[in-house]
Design a binder for these strands. Structure first.
Lengths: 336, 336
DNA sequence: TTGTAAGCGTTATCAC
DNA sequence: GTGATAACGCTTACAA
């Protein structure tokens, strides 16, 4: 098996090794008889080219990278990443690319991973998620001209290839819906404060308040880490306000569900006393009680477009347009 | 950047390229002065070796593979795979390996992926999950002597490296618990019938019935695909039996929750009329109502051990023992 | 149209 | 100890 290389095929087919390579590349210049002779031997021996050698020679690994900045625990119940990964893998496969997934939490390991993946040329390009306002990774990758696509937003928006939800619009829509249903004290629970998505949705929320002439009240804003303790405690804080909220818009379904559970634990009736809306429209929404109203953000769509863009970049084509927006929609259920 | 190779470092440090390689490999034979000179240049230019060249030369890619046989939709809410992937990535990183994730559903793409991943030597080894009774992949990989570790069970058990829950024992424990709490018609909803895990847990279930002198009733056994329609309809069938079940043991939490939801929809009270137990102890369990009793199967543990074993195999050591069992425990909540 | 040969950037085996 | 040099298995000018 280790001996099965092109020279061996060439020897058996009575041609040169270069011809074997040409046949396998589908070079139209090769004579039909030779092609068949070579292919016959290839078939018979089940020869497949060595990806390592191809990578070195062609300077392409046909591997895309995805780095996730979360601990395994924080990933566990989260449907965002499983859908994301599965969809990227599937889409990449259509172009004969594979996906290399890494996780990095600390700044140190993050740096190490980026070094490792791109300077070593282990992957041909990177898909980034969960960007922050001044994102070192993005600055670095742009500077070095490395192919990457951001799922999210980064200023200036047209400088880098990115795919995103209309997060501001989506949060506006959800908040507007809450206010129209008669809610007056709508709280917002974001994820970590640095994340662009946390900020964008906060902005949409603010605009909706504004459009209804409701004053912004900073005490109604909370930020949670991606673990259930933090999510619940954000809700506890909100509930202990002198005038607690009568609705909550949460950054994702997991946060919404944790918060809702905490509210129920404290005797609040949902949606009568307090309404909840999450993001992602994950399967979870249907299972909780009351079922969770959620903004569906089309993760597969996001993943597919990002992958397509990255493949284009990697193969030297310029993706058009550089920034793509995937619409979101509100899926109404019992919680709001 | 593309020009940054060992020859360049060598030129600047005034040594031979071979010496640069030695310094980077930590070869103790090199003179201290030279080592420092080389390292200084390496530091300054931020040189990192090219993984592609290393792969070709060393015949190692430092990439492990994981192939998942599920559609993206079926992965979406499932905490099993996100935890699995994240933990493998983390553990692999400790040995400086990366993870390549692929998904394959059809037999054709499955075959293609195995070809692609291993014959091409794109990865150094594979972690398999969701094995079936006569698994082509396993037969093939064993035959070709390719390094792989199974998360699951395969006969003969000591022929291949595997890590597994004690599924028979765990299902026994859960079923036994249901019977001891007074349940007499315990149903079992598995996943696809071919999966080893589906069969193993069914066996544990049967043994528990036996130990209590309860007759096995085949009409209480259902198999579901990993999509919510199939999960719910399995439950509908069970509920329309002349004597419906008063308890359900499900293959995983998602199935349990879908089934429980269906039962509630049909007016059954949980756990009064019917009890539910799932598997995996996913975050979901706490969020549903009533909260779901579940068998915690220590996915991180499974993933870590599998990764360790695979690294050993890949690096030519024989993992000991070849088969490892990770214990499971019952996490009692409201549903049973 | 096919063969020869020069790399791709490392690692490792030789001599020196 | 260190420096040439030969692989690793492939792609692709260039030569024939």
């Amino acid at each position: 098996m280790a001996e099965l290389k092109q020279v061996e095929i060439a020897r058996l087919a009575g041609v040169s090794q270069a011809t074997v390579s040409r046949v396998l590349k589908g070079d139209p210049q090769v004579n039909e008889a030779m092609r068949e002779r070579v292919l016959a031997v290839v078939q018979e021996l089940g020869y497949v080219p060595d990806a390592r050698a191809q990578s070195l020679r062609s300077q392409r690994t046909r591997l895309l990278g995805l780095v996730i900045h979360r601990a395994p625990e924080a990933l566990a119940g989260d449907p965002f990443f499983s859908t994301l990964i599965a969809t990227i893998v599937e889409q990449a496969a259509k172009h004969e690319y594979h996906l290399c997934v890494d996780t990095a939490r600390t700044a140190r390991t993050q740096r190490a991973i980026y070094e490792e993946l791109l300077r070593t040329r282990r992957v041909d390009g990177l898909i980034l998620v969960e960007s922050e306002s001044h994102d070192k990774r993005i600055e670095r990758l742009s500077r070095e001209g490395f192919p990457f696509v951001l799922i999210g937003r980064y200023e200036p928006e047209d400088a880098i290839a990115s795919v995103d939800n209309d997060n501001i619009g989506a949060a506006f829509m959800a908040t507007d819906y809450l206010i129209r249903s008669g809610r007056r004290r709508v709280a917002y629970i974001g994820g970590p404060a640095g994340l662009t998505v946390t900020r964008d949705r906060l902005q949409g929320y603010k605009r909706a308040l504004e459009s209804h002439g409701i004053d912004y009240d900073a005490s109604l804003i909370a930020f949670a880490e991606f673990n259930s303790r933090s999510m619940a405690s954000a809700m506890t804080d909100l509930l202990s306000l002198p005038t607690p909220p009568d609705a909550v818009l949460a950054l994702d379904d997991l946060i919404a569900v944790s918060a809702m559970r905490e509210a129920k634990r404290q005797g609040r009736r949902v949606p009568d006393d307090i309404a909840f809306i999450g993001f992602n429209d994950s399967p979870l929404c249907q299972y909780v009680e009351p079922s969770l109203t959620s903004v569906a953000v089309e993760i597969p769509q996001l993943a597919r477009r990002a992958t397509e863009m990255l493949v284009e970049l990697v193969e030297g084509r310029a993706p058009m347009p550089k920034r793509q927006i995937v619409p979101a929609r509100l899926v109404k259920r019992e919680s709001a």
